[in-house]
Write a protein that binds this DNA or RNA. Structure first.
Lengths: 146, 146
DNA sequence: AGAATTCTTATAAATTTATGTTGAAAAATA
DNA sequence: TATTTTTCAACATAAATTTATAAGAATTCT
């Protein structure tokens, strides 16, 4: 299957959770809470949030009362940035992103196909913001206030 | 990374090779030849061709003088069929194809996103045939006759 | 019978997915 | 400022899956 890894899926859900809290009150939130809400192992979330921190999409606040918080407004964070941080370049095959990966590019017929398909995804994720995701969530669960 | 597995990539190249030979003379071709041409381990190709056979996209002929041959004309084989055989449903996440996979679908904001993105890919692969791939290959390598 | 080829099964290496344990840093509080 | 609590950070490990190779059996052609 052409598959988004759990890192990409869980990480995106993590960012949506952070965005929902960011929106309603600008406080940091602890991973434990997201772990409970989203039913994802906190140990795994801890691993997943590292690349998001490195990419400066989230900030961590240590110590009592600490937690994590978005580094920017959700409307200013593209889904593509999130996936880039979590999974590296958002392309279906290595060779689309790294020309040196395979020396058959010049002959390979499938290269063009994977490249086009990757572009479709890239454009879609480029034009989807974290804010869009929050709005979808709000629409699906009108009653829930976080 | 949102990644096509090697099964999907190698299998597609395998199908293109079969299509090129099918086009020029309707003989079966042995995996060893494709293995040499495409530089993919023959043992691995043997595993990869099994689902293609099960999906009735290729036919096998056993024994000396045997080999593999496309079951239909390349213009009548969609890339989506190939990927479906090799990787299962062509969707980014399980839940898009199997509603029972996760019970958070009703609340999950990311579900809609992965579903839309999967549709983009699905439509693209649905409208690309093996013949299209052969023509791309011909254009890239005008001199090569197989 | 012998050669060529697919088919089957086993297994090993690499990567992804996930959990457990311990330690370090920061903030709150007394 | 010392203590305690909360939380992030780092490291180790285990399970599952993907990727790949090996060896030999079964089948068919000549």
């Amino acid at each position: 299957m052409i598959r988004l890894s759990t890192k990409g899926r869980y990480g995106t859900r993590l960012m949506v959770s952070l965005a929902q809290h960011y929106h309603n009150r600008r406080e940091s939130i602890i991973l434990k809470k997201i772990s409970d809400e989203e039913e994802i192992s906190i140990r795994y979330l801890e691993q997943i949030i590292i690349p998001l921190k490195i990419a400066r999409l989230v900030k961590s606040i240590r110590g009592a009362g600490g937690g994590y918080i978005l580094a920017r407004d959700p409307s200013n964070i593209k889904l593509r940035e999130i996936l880039l941080a979590l999974e590296g370049a958002c392309c279906l095959v290595e060779c689309v992103d790294d020309e040196d990966y395979c020396d058959r590019i010049k002959e390979c017929a499938t290269y063009e196909i994977w490249k086009n398909a990757s572009s479709l995804l890239k454009d879609y994720f480029e034009n989807t913001t974290l804010q869009d995701l929050v709005e979808i969530a709000d629409k699906k669960n009108p009653s829930v206030r976080k």
